[in-house]
């Protein structure tokens, strides 16, 4: 039953790895880009967490840096995956015609969908690992559970990459990317990233609790601060389901776009 809903999972198996290889080749030329992506959350952590943190004081019994670091990890995982799966993918789809070349080989549309999402995930995992090292070094991880923050960030990356890719298949021109910004900026700012969710009135708080990045922030903050609760499993489930829905849309849409 599940296989019928998500046919691409068995379909895009071993061959999807070839597409990941292709991206590795491309990025061997532009390794600086990958490397530099690690600095953006670091700047935010130093500037906002420590610089602005002096003005903020403590939040819910945490220093501001301890409070904001897990949220920055979550948003970095989301932003990295979104960037790769929207701008980069659109370029490959519309201009470089990368996928048209791929489709004249034994690889199929499902391989492309799985391969691209997997690549976004691998990149995101590298960033998360780097950022977690910094979090540990700066003493911002309060519990050994924090080790699980990396796989948690992978879940966020998976959901964001799958949803991002599926949105890209609907995009017609560069200007449409303003919509990506219109969605990701409020998520970045309002998902209990910079201030606790208790700051909202009840109605808005419930709304925020349903958004994906909030679930991600909640999950990672729970792990790094050691506040382990059953709700964290709900966070995981939410992100997995979202990612699978995204993947299903992607393979259907790519079939429509590429196999005309």
């Amino acid at each position: 039953m599940l296989l019928r809903l998500f046919p691409i999972i068995p379909f895009g198996s071993r061959r999807a790895g070839r597409l990941v290889e292709r991206n590795v080749w491309v990025y061997r030329h532009g390794w600086l880009i990958i490397f530099s992506g690690f600095f953006e959350p670091l700047f935010y952590l130093l500037g906002i967490g420590f610089g602005l943190g002096k003005l903020v004081g403590s939040v819910n019994g945490l220093t501001y840096a301890q409070f904001v670091a897990p949220a920055l990890l979550a948003t970095a995982a989301m932003n990295g995956a979104i960037y790769d799966s929207t701008f980069n993918m659109f370029f490959k789809l519309k201009f470089a015609k990368t996928y048209d070349a791929v489709l004249s080989t034994p690889l199929g549309v499902g391989d492309i969908a799985v391969g691209e999402v997997a690549w976004a995930l691998i990149r995101g995992t590298l960033y998360s690992l780097g950022f977690m090292v910094v979090i540990f070094m700066l003493g911002l991880a309060l519990s050994p559970w924090a080790l699980l923050a990396v796989p948690a960030a992978m879940l966020i990356g998976f959901a964001a990459a799958a949803i991002g890719t599926s949105c890209t298949t609907f995009i017609r021109k560069w200007q449409d990317f303003d919509m990506v910004f219109v969605v990701t900026l409020p998520l970045f700012l309002f998902s209990a990233t910079f201030f606790p969710i208790t700051a909202y009135p009840d109605a808005i708080r419930i709304l925020v609790e349903f958004t994906p990045l909030y679930r991600g922030v909640h999950l990672i903050r729970g792990l790094t601060t050691g506040q382990i609760e059953p709700m964290l499993l709900v966070d995981c489930l939410y992100l997995i389901v979202l990612g699978l829905i995204g993947l299903a849309i992607v393979s259907r849409r790519l079939k429509f776009l590429l196999l005309k």
């Binding site: 602005l52 003005l55 903020v56 004081g57 939040v59 700012l189 309002f190 910079f194 201030f195 700051a199």
Partner: peptide, 10 residues
């Protein structure tokens, strides 16, 4: 977000 939300804390 930053002015009003975070601003309350600051």
């Amino acid at each position: 977000a930053m002015g009003l939300g975070l601003g309350t804390l600051v």
